[in-house]
Write a protein that binds this DNA or RNA. Structure first.
Lengths: 336, 336
DNA sequence: TTGAAAGCGCTAACAA
DNA sequence: TTGTTAGCGCTTTCAA
């Protein structure tokens, strides 16, 4: 009973040719009813299943899609994968996941590895390092080979391919607008360094909201964090300079701000309103529950998979950029 | 420049046979220095890479490992995947991930799909449904086919294969012991329904700790939650009956208890000590920060991948169960 | 030193 | 109605 049974085994056993078996299993009218039944019964008995690898080689398509993301222990990326997986599975594709672990080199290696026949197309979110270097030769190579690629979240505008993003700028704009609406006058921003595309865009949204409301931009109220390990030390001074509102570009920064406020005896939301980005576990279980900009990772994943599969199966040449809407989820960390 | 170049292309271009090209690229001494150099230069120029699928078919191994987990939007499973991926990558394997989404049927379908040649071995954590049904025919089938399988976390003792678990019972025991040490007299348990193996084991640890310390077990202090959506309603009564300690078998339940306590004006840790399970994001950012039993998902993933790869490459017949140690991480949600 | 041929498992055009 | 053959891309034995 060891090992899988092949057409060859069946053909030998039943004393017919391999192609007869192949056709019989497909219920081809070329084959007599009798033979068909005999073969099918035998195949069923021994639980025959065609070998995926052989089919891939024959058909020159693997029915696998490759996903490369910077990290997986991250609520947002996990939801994206869930979305991709669901959509892919529904169309008969499997998902091969590689982690670039925020390393440019790993991103390149993983792409090369997968590009050598293992998959039919890529879904990818760039590492910070790649965004900083602006070195996209590996993406271009893959595209030139004719392999479809969909970029999401951390993208590069200059790459000719499909993209799925959220409107980071608008999400941030809405959040800061909300802070202004509930009466905040002095609003701090906790962001990432600028080379991370989403951080940069959210920062722009913050600035636009201030400008539109005729609030002067104060650079002292803008904290850009490179190293998450030192987030606390960088955020503390911000809370000490009398802000009454804080917009953070991710959940962790928002939570750090909330916890620091607790320590300093600053009351949320009466003295300080806080809004985060990404509607993950942290936001829901925070106390007070965090008002946040939700980015629907699940939908992003679904859209990305859908676009990719369409490209794989249709080979069109027009590239689209799909913008998934954000939504401000108002909870208890903002006044009113 | 479209499409990948193959040995055939090279052989045609250089007017030598395919096998000569193959050997030359491997620097075989069979081939003259001159030919080798010519072929290698050409291959480099056109960026030749052997086709993974063809290699898989030829070698009858794919260098892929299949991972099936109940969900991915879950810190613990995400860390396990990270561990698997790291270890697998280091040995030249890729990771194909399928989500069973807690559905027995999806688990079966995914296994069958992957078992048909796509991977060299499985790493799997059972769905709740599978654990409830105790129907393991799909696992047995795969094992009978000669495909290695490693089970982790949610396992079934009766399956003959390698396993990686944590000592759930001891982890729970230690946690409850800690509560007793800091002076808790009336300790509640928030657990899952019993058919989930880890929930059952953690419940046992709770019971053992009470018994060992001569504390009478009070069934009213034990809450078993089936549906996470109604966790709050089920936990609230527990807090109303005067407990001074609570042990929850996961982070979410612990956080729900903490937040309910806040609402009810119960002070943590002075009036109520809380300990959770799994050292994830929630525990770290909770206020007060949550004392918790850490289960090192990363290590679990690494061990699982290591065991699987060994089985793939060595074909030994002895099955091991590796127990990864838990550790009590004491933070601010427990007295003293 | 090179190449022909077989084979991994499957499909499909064509021949018998 | 069935079988032969070629081919997907590669490796490897054996013959030239």
């Amino acid at each position: 009973m060891k090992g899988k049974i092949t057409l060859k085994h069946i053909s030998k056993e039943l004393d017919v040719s391999i192609s007869t078996v192949s056709k019989a299993l497909k219920d081809s009218p070329e084959i007599s009813q009798e033979t068909r039944e005999k073969v099918q019964a035998f195949a069923k008995l021994y639980n025959y299943r065609p070998n995926n690898i052989a089919l891939s080689l024959k058909n020159r398509k693997t029915k696998n899609i490759g996903v490369i993301i910077p990290e997986i222990v991250h609520h947002f990326f996990a939801t994206v994968i869930e979305g991709i997986e669901q959509e892919a599975n529904a169309s008969g594709y499997n998902v091969i996941i590689c982690l670039s672990s925020e390393s440019f080199d790993k991103e390149v290696i993983n792409m090369e590895m997968l590009a050598n026949g293992s998959i039919d197309g890529f879904i990818l979110s760039l590492t910070k390092e790649t965004q900083m270097k602006k070195d996209y030769h590996h993406l271009v190579e893959v595209i030139n080979q004719g392999m479809p690629l969909v970029l999401f979240d951390r993208i590069a505008d200059e790459i000719p391919c499909d993209k799925v993003v959220i409107d980071d700028e608008k999400g941030a704009f809405d959040a800061v607008n909300k802070l202004i609406e509930v009466g905040c006058k002095k609003i701090g921003l906790i962001s990432t360094v600028d080379y991370v595309s989403v951080g940069r865009l959210r920062t722009q949204g913050y600035l636009k909201a201030l400008i539109k409301n005729n609030i002067e931009v104060d650079q002292n109220l803008i904290v850009k964090i490179e190293d998450v390990a030192h987030a606390s030390e960088m955020i503390a001074p911000l809370l000490d300079c009398g802000v009454d509102g804080v917009f953070a570009v991710n959940e962790a920064f928002a939570m750090t701000a909330i916890n620091l406020a607790h320590e300093k005896g600053i009351k949320i939301p009466s003295q300080l309103s806080v809004i985060g980005f990404t509607d993950g576990e942290l936001s829901k279980y925070a106390s007070p529950a965090l008002t946040t900009v939700s980015q629907n990772g699940h939908q992003i994943g679904q859209e990305a998979a859908r676009m990719l599969i369409e490209k794989i199966e249709e080979e069109s040449e027009v590239f689209q950029t799909k913008v998934v809407k954000t939504k401000l989820i108002v909870r208890k960390s903002t006044k009113n």
